[in-house]
Structure formats: structure tokens, C-alpha cells
């Protein structure tokens, strides 16, 4: 990895440079909750002042800039017996500034599924390739357990990654375009002191996490397949799907055919879905092989913490805790994993 130092002033110039010809997405404060806590969201910004790099977390992840909730996969126009098909997956270049390590790790996991050799999605790949990513280090967010699932540090999948050293940023460069973009502003090589300060900040951040016991989790889950823990939590689940909507790694979707009222146009519309919905596993003929909440909730956790490990040797979950925060019934991975561990020890 290549490292550079840039002053806060220069970083501001850097954002101005990006804003000149690129859409810039960054954390913005959009509201305060009933307890007075700020609510942030990744949104397009027009100037540096709008960006809140000190945000703790966002309710919604940035995944939908790559995997929109809803998109037209293709559309057809019918003109008598002739028809014309249109497929659009080119997008304008875009920059996302201020992604935390978990969210960049989430993109790396999505890359494995959607940009791998087996089922590459041109829709996803075009957005991913056309998005310039500037990550940033931060103190742990409330509830976050990214460290326990190995997602608190990130070594690739971004263009630049910043660590705040007080009056300056320590910038890791991970792409040619990241390197070239930084040429637009004044930077310098890190000194021994910069390196020291950087490592110190990283150590301080790492020491603040509350560890979650995840040792041997896939096998533990297999052994605890019939555990009462699943029913205990599933009894609370309202099958609202919000956990999957805010999760930076959930990628399940459905495809629907829509025709216009005058029958002149049709479109295949892809929409992200959730494995917690009643009809998620309904197949032709109306058979539903996951009709109960218990099976559905269990399989959400199996996909995140076991199935994905079998396929890619790492969990899908990046520990961002958005699902726990959004769940009105307070269903969350740390509590469920903890329960499984306790049950096993008993």
C-alpha cells in the first residue's frame, strides 16, 4: 500500500476537485431521533460543509448506490409485430466519501457474489467500477461488532482510505485513479512520526471494541440447528424485512414483469427482497418451504454466518449492527450468537 499525508485544508480542496465533475455522495445529517441523537444518511452533497465525516453510523447502508432497491433490468417497446429491447447499465461516474471499514468490506463481499466468475452482474459491476471510494477510520459505533467478524480493517476495495490524525489525514492509496486524483492537491510522504501516530490511532480504535465470541460459529450453528434459541427470537419477529433492507450485504431480490396500461411497453423490474417475508420460499404451485418465522429467521443467520462461510470462507455479516438498530423487536446478531454460545456451554 502507498501512503500519503494531506492536511485538512488540502482534503477540502480535494473534495472541491471531486465535486467539479463528479456526483459526490457522503454522510449528511437528516434528522434527530426522539432521544436527540443525530440520524445520518449517505446522500448527494453540493459542497464540503454538508459532509459530516464525524458521523457515527447511518440507518441505511450505502449498498443501494450499487444495488438499488428497484431497477429496470430491461424494457421492451412493442410496435405492432416489431419490438425493441433496451438494456441500460451504464452510469455516470460517482464518488462516495466517508465509508467506514465495515461498509467497504460489505462491498468486497458483494463483489464475490455479483462480480465473481459465476454469476457476474453487469448492473452491479458498472456501478462498482464507476464509483470512486474514499473510506475513513472512526471510533466504534454503538453495538457494532465488525472486529469480531474481521471487518474493522480493510485492505482493498477502495481508492483512498483516510485516518484522522488530528490536524492531518493519513491516506492509504489503493488504486491508480486514487493516486492520480491525489495529485490534484498537495500531499507529502509520511514521516516516522506520521506512521507512529497512525498506528497509535489504529490501536486506540481496535482496543475499544467489545469482543463477541464467534469462535467456530459455523460448526456451532450446525450443532445447534434444533436449538430453542431460534424459536425464542423468532417468536418476536414480525417478518417486516427491515433488517435485510438496511443490511449492507443482503442481496436477495425478486423480478417482476410490468406492462404499461396501453400494452405498448414492458419492463423486467428487479426489487430487493427479504428472506423474512412470508412468501420468500414460496415456489410454483404455492408450496412454501419456509412458512414459519422460526425457519426464516434461522436461515437468515445461517446464510450470514454459516452458508456464506462455506462458499467464501468468511461470514457475509460485517457486524455493522444496522439490523439490530432497525429491528423494533430488538432482534440482533450479538444477542443471538451469544445465546447460541451459552446454550452450547450448558
Amino acid at each position: 500500500m502507498l501512503f500519503k499525508i494531506l492536511s485538512k485544508e488540502e482534503f477540502r480542496n480535494f473534495i472541491d476537485f471531486l465535486l467539479k465533475d463528479t456526483e459526490v455522495i457522503a454522510p449528511k445529517q437528516i434528522n434527530v431521533n426522539a432521544d436527540g441523537k443525530a440520524i445520518y444518511q449517505f446522500l448527494p452533497v453540493q459542497n464540503f460543509e454538508e459532509i459530516r465525516l464525524d458521523y457515527e453510523t447511518t440507518d441505511y447502508s450505502a449498498k443501494t448506490y450499487f444495488l438499488p432497491y428497484k431497477e429496470d433490468l430491461s424494457s421492451c417497446s412493442f410496435l405492432g409485430t416489431i419490438w425493441d429491447r433496451e438494456i441500460k447499465y451504464r452510469i455516470q461516474p460517482r464518488a462516495i466519501v466517508g465509508l467506514h471499514a465495515c461498509d467497504i468490506n460489505a462491498l468486497l463481499k458483494l463483489d464475490k457474489v455479483l462480480a465473481g466468475d459465476r454469476f457476474p452482474s453487469p448492473y452491479y459491476i458498472s456501478r462498482r467500477k464507476n464509483t470512486f471510494i474514499v473510506g475513513i477510520d472512526h471510533d466504534p459505533c454503538e453495538g457494532g461488532f465488525c472486529q469480531s467478524v474481521g471487518a474493522d480493517v480493510v485492505t482493498h476495495g477502495f481508492d483512498l482510505y483516510l485516518t484522522d490524525l488530528g490536524d492531518r489525514y493519513f491516506a492509504a492509496i489503493n488504486s491508480n485513479r486514487g493516486f492520480n486524483a491525489l495529485q490534484q492537491v498537495k500531499t507529502r510522504e509520511p514521516t516516522a512520526r506520521d506512521n507512529n501516530d497512525y498506528l497509535e490511532v489504529r490501536r486506540r480504535i481496535a482496543s475499544q471494541f467489545k469482543p463477541l465470541e464467534v469462535h467456530n460459529l459455523p460448526n456451532l450453528m450446525d450443532i445447534e440447528f434444533e436449538s430453542k434459541v431460534w424459536k425464542k427470537w423468532a417468536d418476536k419477529c414480525m417478518s417486516c424485512g427491515s433488517c435485510a433492507m438496511v443490511c449492507p450485504t443482503c442481496y436477495c431480490y425478486g423480478v417482476e414483469e410490468r406492462i404499461t396500461m396501453n400494452n405498448a411497453k414492458s419492463a423486467k423490474i428487479k426489487q430487493l427482497y427479504s428472506c423474512q417475508f412470508l412468501d420468500f420460499a414460496t415456489v410454483a404451485g404455492g408450496l412454501n418451504f419456509r412458512p414459519d418465522r422460526e425457519t426464516r429467521l434461522k436461515y437468515r443467520y445461517y446464510h450470514q454466518h454459516r452458508g456464506f462461510v462455506e462458499a467464501y470462507e468468511e461470514p457475509l455479516c460485517v457486524g455493522c449492527y444496522r439490523c439490530g438498530r432497525v429491528c423494533l423487536a430488538d432482534i440482533n446478531p450479538p444477542d443471538i450468537i451469544q445465546d447460541l454460545q451459552t446454550e452450547y456451554q450448558e
Binding site: 431521533n33 427491515s242 427479504s274 412468501d279
Partner: peptide
């Protein structure tokens, strides 16, 4: 649809009104 209102609410990036009390 088999899903409740929350699904389409979330897909519009709404701040959950429960969060606002």
C-alpha cells in the same frame, strides 16, 4: 404482496416514525 408496509417504507429511506417517538 406478502410483505407489510415497512418494506416499501424502508425502500424509500424513511426515518422510522417509531424512532421519532
Amino acid at each position: 404482496p406478502a410483505y407489510p408496509v415497512c418494506f416499501e417504507c424502508k425502500q424509500q429511506y424513511t426515518t422510522c416514525v417509531f424512532e421519532l417517538g
